[in-house]
Simulated scan of single mutants.
Amino acid sequence: MANESLIPVVVNGAGGKMGREVIKAVAEAEDTILLGAVDRNQKYIGADAGEVAGCGALEVPILNDLESVLVLATQEKIQGVMVDFTHPDSVYDNVRSAIAYGVRPVVGTTGLSAEQIQELAEFADKASTGALIIPNFSIGMVLLQQAALQASQYFDHVEIIELHHNQKADAPSGTAIKTAEMLAEMGKTYNPKSVEESEKIAGSRGGLAPENIRIHSVRLPGLIAHQEVIFGAPGQIYTLRHDTSDRACYMPGVLLAIRKVTELKNLVYGLEQILK
């Protein structure tokens, strides 16, 4: 059993780059404790999660059975939290399983559709279980999005470029989608046509998000996570850009989400919602 004053945390996707950072952050925080670690990659199964993360032995083995670890979390006095950084193909089932066991999910995995998020929200409501889906845990990205909303009041033309490492499985990024959704909610349609466009190569103009916002995705080794929101008007360009140089930048947001989700009884989408 974990210390009854600490929040027990299960890290799903423990062997991944983000999973390893979360393990280190949870181990170092004063109010959290690593209760379990899960990964499907066979090379990590049975290994000590702390040693895989590079923070020293934590006596928590990495397992490949999420449900058995969720059962362990239900035995704690304080309701457990599952932090999920896995794959778009499995995240929906992971979140449903956590809610079903009464373990509160904090989800950094992107790729969930709007319909899936709505279904999970309804499931969380019925279970009175808090859940957080966070496309981006960086405080800097939240500030960029807020600046973009301010700029949208004065600019009618905008496009989004997101750049990630070439191991990212989904495109566009959840952060770019969230940014476009926020801009679309401002009550205007962007990029009024000045010419009839045609694409010589399909997709050249990027993906089309609500309210006529274009999103362009770049995938290259050497990148981590980057986003530009570019506004244009006659005689001027206004560019907002956020660059990630180390995944440690996400950890203050992850720890905040772990603490906040224990206070919720429903699903909340977006880091900005818990910064208010």
Rank of each mutant, 00 (worst) to 15 (best):
S5G: 06
L6P: 01
P8D: 03
V9Y: 01
V11A: 02
N12S: 15
N12V: 12
N12E: 09
G13T: 09
A14Q: 04
R20E: 13
V22F: 08
K24M: 14
K24C: 13
A25W: 03
A25R: 03
A27T: 09
E28A: 15
E28L: 11
D31P: 08
T32K: 09
L35K: 02
A37K: 01
V38E: 05
V38N: 01
Y44Q: 06
A49G: 00
G50S: 09
G50C: 08
G50A: 10
E51F: 02
V52H: 04
C55K: 05
C55P: 12
G56H: 08
L58N: 04
L58H: 02
L63R: 12
L66Y: 10
E67G: 07
S68W: 00
S68V: 14
S68Y: 03
V69W: 00
T74D: 11
I78S: 11
G80R: 07
V91G: 02
V95S: 03
R96V: 08
A98K: 01
V103K: 03
V106I: 11
G108K: 00
T109D: 11
G111L: 07
L112Y: 04
L112H: 06
S113E: 06
S113R: 05
A114P: 03
Q118H: 09
L120N: 07
A121N: 05
F123V: 08
D125C: 04
K126T: 12
A127L: 06
L132A: 06
L132N: 01
S138Y: 03
L143D: 10
L143C: 03
Q145L: 14
S152K: 00
Q153C: 04
F155L: 10
D156C: 06
D156H: 11
H157A: 06
E162P: 02
K168P: 00
A169W: 04
A169T: 13
A171Y: 13
A171F: 15
S173Y: 02
T175S: 14
A176W: 02
I177S: 03
I177R: 14
I177E: 13
E181W: 04
M182P: 01
A184S: 15
T189G: 02
N191L: 05
N191W: 04
N191R: 09
K193G: 00
V195L: 12
S198W: 09
S198G: 01
A202Q: 09
A202R: 13
G203D: 08
S204E: 15
S204W: 07
R205S: 15
L208P: 01
P210Q: 11
P210K: 10
P210M: 11
P210F: 08
E211G: 01
I213C: 10
R214D: 07
H216I: 14
G222F: 10
G222I: 13
G222M: 09
G222R: 04
G222H: 09
L223W: 03
L223G: 01
I224D: 02
A225F: 15
A225P: 00
E228F: 14
E228K: 13
V229Y: 06
R241L: 10
R241W: 01
T244E: 15
D246Y: 09
D246C: 12
R247V: 09
Y250W: 12
P252Y: 04
V254F: 05
V254H: 01
A257L: 07
I258F: 10
R259W: 07
V261Y: 08
L264W: 05
N266D: 12
L267H: 00
V268F: 00
Y269V: 14
Q273H: 12
L275G: 08
K276S: 13
